[in-house]
């Protein structure tokens, strides 16, 4: 279900404790702190292992997230904007990560550019509520999606390298 490499990445991301969603006021603030701590740790791990691949930040309430992710292919860096809302039912349901600029370019996407996750992601998430957070959704959801979809889209000529 999860390969050895992902398993290792995953085990180095701290787990979260607080079961709280954006409607839970103070408890949500606590959860948000945990989310940030886990994300910071994950990005630091990535930097150390030379596999830095995204940045994220949120609005003050922590309900809306945005940032960038990038993917290396044949020594070229392809960059995409990320955005998603934290649903009212979070963390029971995972955030639906979207790459709006790829909307309509691949069938592995729902409206608005929400990435289509594998059959395994949701059960895995459900079994790990409330321990998994945004960092885990990135590692288990977006990272494998990019690894499968981006090379394919480049090969088909649907996305091309933009020098920034």
């Amino acid at each position: 279900m999860v390969d050895e490499c992902t398993r290792k990445t995953l085990s180095n991301i701290p787990l979260l404790q607080t079961r709280a969603g954006p409607r839970d006021k103070e408890l949500w603030v606590q959860r948000l702190k945990e989310e940030y701590q886990a994300l910071i740790k994950y990005v630091q791990n990535n930097k150390e292992s030379g596999s830095d691949w995204f940045r994220l930040e949120s609005n003050k309430e922590g309900t809306r997230w945005f940032g960038k992710c990038w993917y290396m292919h044949n020594l070229l860096k392809y960059e995409f904007d990320i955005e998603f809302d934290i649903p009212v039912t979070y963390p029971t349901t995972a955030p639906e990560i979207a790459l709006p600029e790829l909307d309509g370019k691949t069938a592995k996407m729902y409206r608005g550019g929400k990435i289509c996750l594998t059959d395994h992601f949701k059960p895995l998430w459900a079994r790990n509520v409330p321990k998994f957070g945004i960092a885990h959704a990135m590692a288990l959801g977006l990272a494998p999606w990019l690894a499968v979809e981006i090379p394919d889209l480049i090969e088909k000529g649907i996305i091309t390298y933009k020098d920034k």
């Binding site: 701290p14 787990l15 606590q30 945990e34 701590q37 321990k131």
Partner: peptide, 8 residues
């Protein structure tokens, strides 16, 4: 399980 020590 090791969790983030989200100190107050």
């Amino acid at each position: 399980v090791p969790t983030v020590a989200a100190a107050a």
